[in-house]
Design a binder for these strands. Structure first.
Lengths: 129, 129
DNA sequence: CTAAAGCTTCCAGTTGCGGGAAGCTCAAGA
DNA sequence: TCTTGAGCTTCCCGCAACTGGAAGCTTTAG
């Protein structure tokens, strides 16, 4: 199967698929004309990667997860460990964003937003809080 | 004042300060020896930038905000507009992360995390939800 | 006088692709 | 059969916002 059809079936842009081959996440065969020839297993892998990326896993995490997926001798504890670390990272990002959000929303509420130059937002940035 | 002292006073790494000069956010003078010579106003600007970055504003937003800060004829509505857009962006990032978090936490809870290979996390990635 | 610290510029790498150029292949219509 | 257009290939640049490191000059401390 050519990359265009694979792109639709896996839900990933052709550019992304080529990139994943570049970095060794998938290894499609090649036809005589030089075109990539994807097997069903490649499509399955690509869809797996797409979903892992949707959950926010880094490419390196995806590589690890894919490796575990294909390793019959894996221990689920290994998978859980990767997922838990990622969950922790997500939590700290959320916390950071919420902190920004809190400060920023206060400032936005305090700002009149009219034609006059006086602005609590700029004042806060200038003086620090 | 040299970059080292400015770095401490503004709370930004020297590399970052040089980068901000590169992209035209600050324009320190130069001493005869070629060293950057920062004025108080430069330090003030850098601290302003540091705080804006802490609130998650992009560099281009920072450039805009700094411009407004130095423009006596600004209207606070302009500042508020930039801040509100950023707030919206933060909100959607939070929403996206929470969505990831929700799915991922369910999966992590469902996974035994023991020595056996069976893993709901991998199963979900393989099949989609 | 020397060594270390601090400054300079420049270049490469990070993450995860996207855009676009140049060029080959293939499928369909006149 | 020829041609056109779509689809495929590789390659390299660019994004955001820096960080790290090399090579080399200046200043400072002992």
């Amino acid at each position: 199967m050519n990359i265009g059809e694979v792109s639709e079936r896996a839900g990933l842009p052709p550019k992304t698929i080529r990139y994943y081959e570049d970095i060794g996440l998938v290894r499609p065969l090649r036809s005589d004309n030089g075109y990539r020839a994807f097997r069903e297993s490649d499509i399955h892998k690509l869809a797996f990667l797409g979903r892992a990326r949707t959950l926010g896993f880094s490419i390196e995490d995806c590589r690890t997860l894919l490796g575990l997926y294909e390793d019959e001798t894996r221990e689920s504890a290994q998978v859980k460990s990767v997922a838990k670390e990622h969950l922790t990272a997500i939590d700290s990002k959320i916390a950071q964003l919420k902190s920004m959000r809190k400060t920023l929303s206060h400032l936005v509420e305090a700002c009149q937003g009219d034609h006059r130059p006086d602005c609590p937002i700029l004042e806060d940035l200038a003086k620090g809080s």
